[in-house]
């Protein structure tokens, strides 16, 4: 397997507070990498680095290297093109105050696509992939913000898929939605694995266990352990802290 994303000695500082303290690891092509760890351990920061939205945070300081397909992302001139290669799903569902259709068509449109017929195709494909099409196909032109939380989260996923990303990052996507919807989205992710690399940051240890090929445990901005999910969740985990966290002793 070839690496899709390479991260080497990545450090991120917000003012005097160090959020990531020198992370180094690789994410393989077409794998689901689970990232687990307690709150405030730097998981969201890591995702923000991958699509460089971290640059919108005032007073942030970056060190180290992140590359996608061997190209340093910080040397890419068009940051927006980078972001179209990386789909991002935030913890809380964000339906933009646009119609459902425009929510999904938003990214292609900002990327310069204005062909109505092609947009129709993209919208239908993405909503179907996100398991939302059947519920909303009759009301595509109503406001996305009026959908339920679970529907909005699937809408967010559809939007993240709309520009055909190579990488999909999900940041605790199930935090605000019900278990049934969570299960449906998990099914969706299993299907997407064949076509993209998925980084799944999760607060639910069991979710990583169900979905991830490999799992990384991050604590206080440091990578404690990265291993095959089966290994990490078995007695063979190397680090005592991993055992404790997975076993529910803290976190």
């Amino acid at each position: 397997m070839e690496p899709k994303i390479e991260i080497s000695s990545l450090r991120v500082k917000y003012g005097s507070k160090e959020a990531l303290k020198g992370l180094s690891f690789q994410i393989m092509k077409n794998e689901i990498l689970g990232i687990i760890g307690p709150a405030q351990s730097g998981k969201t920061t890591l995702l923000k680095v991958v699509n460089r939205t971290i640059e919108h945070v005032p007073g942030v300081e970056l060190n180290g290297m992140v590359s996608i397909d061997g190209v340093d992302i910080f040397k890419m001139r068009d940051v927006h093109a980078l972001r179209r290669r990386v789909g991002m799903v935030a913890p809380l569902p964000v339906g933009l105050p646009l119609s459902i259709y425009e929510n999904v068509a938003f990214a292609p449109r900002t990327g310069g696509m204005n062909n109505k017929a092609k947009l129709d195709v993209i919208v239908e494909r993405c909503l179907t992939q996100a398991a939302l099409w059947d519920e909303v196909k009759d009301r595509l032109h109503t406001l996305g913000t009026k959908l339920s939380g679970g529907q909005q989260q699937r809408l967010t996923i559809a939007r993240a898929l709309s520009h055909n990303p190579e990488i999909l990052c999900l940041d605790e996507f199930s935090i605000a939605i019900d278990p049934v919807t969570t299960m449906r989205i998990e099914e969706v992710l299993k299907e997407l694995r064949s076509s993209m690399t998925i980084i799944l940051v999760t607060n639910l240890v069991q979710q990583a266990r169900r979905l991830a090929d490999r799992t990384a445990f991050i604590l206080n901005g440091e990578l404690v352990e990265l291993a095959e999910t089966n290994l990490l969740f078995s007695d063979q985990a190397v680090d005592q802290r991993t055992k404790d966290y997975v076993g529910g002793i803290f976190g």
Partner: peptide, 13 residues
């Protein structure tokens, strides 16, 4: 702010 972040996430300038 979440609306802006969502837009930046999909590559909007």
């Amino acid at each position: 702010m979440a609306f802006r972040e969502a837009c930046w996430n999909v590559g909007a300038t």
